[in-house]
């Protein structure tokens, strides 16, 4: 099938090495600095607060949003993370997940809103999201390292690429799902587009948007191991060490830690979505 030569590999490398990195490195250094500061801040905070206090806060949150059962599970889960001596790693992972999720929401929700209101934006955004979700992770890990170096920052960027699409898609869906007659009624009484958005469309889309945020968090957690491959600290790192030293026990201990955090965050965000 080699009818004509497509030097995609060469072009990409020339583009990345010859143009992208030199011209944009200043910008990326800046972004990199901000994100690093953000991650460090959150991590330091989570590690500085005594585990007991975080546990109490999490249990209360779980109780308020998701009920007694989840609160009990959260308590047991926190005890587990402490007893296998993985508390600091757990907090590191939690920090990266929180930061990635926050960035995903900050970009994802507004883009979702825009694409729900404007079909041109929608047509541009859809294929980009498909691309973000189907492109093998390792393909963008490499440029992420080139642009942002090793550590938490490229991990957050890669996680963002992988985890942001549900936030965009579910926001879009949530807004489009608002019944036509309700939108029509609001316009008939003289709402401006802004009033329509904030008084009708967003409030009615919140449960769907929260379902998107929940998915984003889950995807971000599922990236924990991959993130550690490019130098992010945390439970992913524990699992990787377990794999590379053929220490099945260590791998399992770390892996279970990720599962525990996943279940706690999942139940809490689901509960929150129903409450709002």
């Amino acid at each position: 099938m080699n009818y004509f030569q497509l030097p995609l590999e060469e072009w990409t490398n020339t583009f990345v090495d010859g143009w992208l990195i030199p011209t944009t490195s200043g910008l990326f250094d800046q972004i990199s600095e901000w994100i690093a500061a953000f991650i460090n801040g959150v991590t330091d905070l989570l590690i500085m607060i005594p585990p007991e206090i975080i546990t109490i806060l999490l249990v209360l949150l779980a109780w308020k949003t998701a009920g007694k059962g989840v609160a009990v599970f959260t308590l047991i889960g926190c005890f587990y993370l402490g007893s296998v001596a993985l508390w600091p790693e757990s907090m590191q992972t939690l920090a990266i997940v929180l930061v990635s999720t926050l960035i995903s929401v900050i970009f994802g929700v507004p883009i979702g809103i825009l694409s729900a209101m404007n079909s041109v934006v929608d047509r541009i955004v859809k294929p980009i999201l498909d691309f973000m979700q189907t492109l093998p992770i390792f393909v963008y890990l490499i440029p992420a390292i080139l642009l942002f170096g090793l550590g938490g920052v490229p991990a957050v960027i890669a996680t963002f690429v992988f985890a942001a699409p549900p936030a965009v898609r579910m926001t879009n869906l949530g807004i489009k799902q608002v019944p036509e007659e309700v939108v029509e009624a609001s316009r008939a009484f003289g709402s401006t587009p802004k009033q329509l958005l904030f008084k009708v469309q967003l409030p009615l889309a919140i449960p769907t948007i929260m379902a998107g945020v929940n998915q984003t968090i889950m995807l971000a957690l599922s990236m924990a191991v991959v993130a550690s491959m490019i130098g992010a600290p945390g439970l992913g790192d524990t699992v990787l060490t377990g794999i590379s030293t053929v220490n099945v026990g260590l791998g399992l201990t770390g892996g279970l830690g990720i599962v525990v955090i996943a279940i706690i965050l999942d139940r809490i965000t689901q509960g929150l979505g129903k409450k709002l």
Binding site: P179, E181, V182, A185, K199, L204
Partner: peptide
């Protein structure tokens, strides 16, 4: 305006 399907804000 009054609508057939009411169009109330749920």
């Amino acid at each position: 305006m009054v609508f057939q399907k009411f169009g109330l804000l749920p």
